[in-house]
Nucleic acid binder design. Sequence first.
DNA 1: TTGAAAGCGCTAACAT
DNA 2: ATGTTAGCGCTTTCAA
Lengths: 347, 347
Amino acid sequence: MNGGKLPTIRDVAARAGVSVMTVSRVANKQSWVSPATRAKVEKAIAELNYAPNATARALAGGDRRVALLYRSSTTSAYLGELLLGGMDEAARRHFHLVVEQCESGVPVEEVMARIVQARLSGVVMPPPLCDWDELIEALARQGVPAVMMAPDRVHTGLPVVAIDDGQAASDMTRHLIELGHRRIAFIRGNPRHRSSDRRLEGYRRTMAAQGLEVSEDYIVEGDFSYRSGLEAAERLLDLAVLPTAIFACNDDMAAAAITIAHQRQISVPAELSVCGFDDTPLAGAIWPALTTVRQPIRDMSRAAMTLLAGAIRGPGGESEGQALARLDYQIIRRQSDAVPPLHQERG
Amino acid sequence: MNGGKLPTIRDVAARAGVSVMTVSRVANKQSWVSPATRAKVEKAIAELNYAPNATARALAGGDRRVALLYRSSTTSAYLGELLLGGMDEAARRHFHLVVEQCESGVPVEEVMARIVQARLSGVVMPPPLCDWDELIEALARQGVPAVMMAPDRVHTGLPVVAIDDGQAASDMTRHLIELGHRRIAFIRGNPRHRSSDRRLEGYRRTMAAQGLEVSEDYIVEGDFSYRSGLEAAERLLDLAVLPTAIFACNDDMAAAAITIAHQRQISVPAELSVCGFDDTPLAGAIWPALTTVRQPIRDMSRAAMTLLAGAIRGPGGESEGQALARLDYQIIRRQSDAVPPLHQERG
DNA sequence: TTGAAAGCGCTAACAT
DNA sequence: ATGTTAGCGCTTTCAA
């Protein structure tokens, strides 16, 4: 052995009787190498148990660093999903994936400085960062490729990965209507997140399409937090004419609605159906388990990496232009939705 | 500007009128540099907005790569917490933190090969990896420093970070007893996880200390999953003499117990108190919100990094010896525990 | 206290 | 199809 040290490309070259360049070519499955030479090199690689040194490769200019930006407000579960999705895709493309915290209190210039100094050749921006306009503009000015995950509004010229929020909300609304619900209430998310608006629109559109009037009392505002869901649900269940279903903009608020219903002895789903959005782990662990819309975060993160790879080109090169990955959502039906009370009587 | 390129150590040296070595010393706050020289260099660094290139630094032999190993069975929430805790600590110590998946199906040799080839100078092993004996032995043989997070049994000579599971369970049990409970049931976790056993022991010890007999019917087995909690709770609530409290080995199983109670119209906490362990996000989002023991995963991950740093020494150097970081747990009281029914009548 | 030289392990650009 | 020559940006000797 080489003194306890790992074999280098030079060791392989020596053993195979070729130059290091040839080994490099074989290792990168690049360029033309004669089958005979390739075989020799591969044999040497196998015998030495050689694996290229990622650091050296990166220094020499091969690899690139891309970052997964996140806000501290991101839940660890979401972050974990992003990571699990992004990692292998990044590795496959010889990207180094680094995770960078990025707070809103910090001035954009400072964030940009960090990004530049970290030698990042691209960034993935999950919500809510993907809606920080100043940052997006600064990135564009500096020519740092970025891909947005589930942004509120689609910035022209930027790659985006998302599901169709409006369509998903529409589908869920239709599902409730088909169950027989007529009085369906809606808990909005933070008004600054436009994804909330798009979900609201999907809901409105479908209600209208089915000829169902929506009282404005039935649309209450939340901010995606469990707490806000508590308040929203109370307002809803204080109404003179109770809704038979509540569709919340995310799972936390839906869980809150279920909690309030419990407290008021309103049975879910017998008397009240409650649906959420996101399919967080919470959805399966509350009682009754939540019917919700699943966003494939992990797949979206993977797709974001792929898009980012496309957007990263030679330094100063022009951007790849817009790209959009629309991923499939799924309505996960559990136990929080049912035929409304009136229908049950009739049946 | 240097043609759009980032300033290198050489640019700084030139501008400060010193050698690159001096700049390197200043950048690393190392060795002796005269205050005057240091000032000059720092000025140049500031003016150029210089930041050392981590990749180059790593290649030249400065930095080290440490890995956070994980199993695919790890929830993304847990992984996220590990990451959030470990990252800054790793960065502060000039460690590159990489995240590596590590399945149980794979032979140990293969895992070791990956670890060696990835040039890892240390690994953090969260559960359940920290209880894979063969891997631990292989790591020791190869001299790869590793620190265990919340392992089932304490391997001599290995750094460990954990909370006192037994004491925490004991505290929670005492809390229930002080509320007035006498018939306290226990849902165990996977029997292969000894942390489950330690929690059970803590429970048993405290029950005994208070002179309370524990029927073996009151101790049922789960495997940490929500599903298993469902079954365990059903067995418990099928008993002739119902417990007034259920203490589950983790939050998922506690949530399951609450679900079953709901289904049987048993009011929680009025008729049945339910407590969990871990304080996952789930705990705060179910109804009633779960009283549970909080493990400071993030802090534990941070502590693990610190221990790992201590364990990593010059190549072939002797290990630092054993180290143990015992972190503080906390009993988070929410709404799932209360005085038992009988006491209420008396009061 | 500071500097000069020699790489770390690899790849890009040019030979051949 | 394969080899040669230069570095990438930093740190580590060793000298001054």
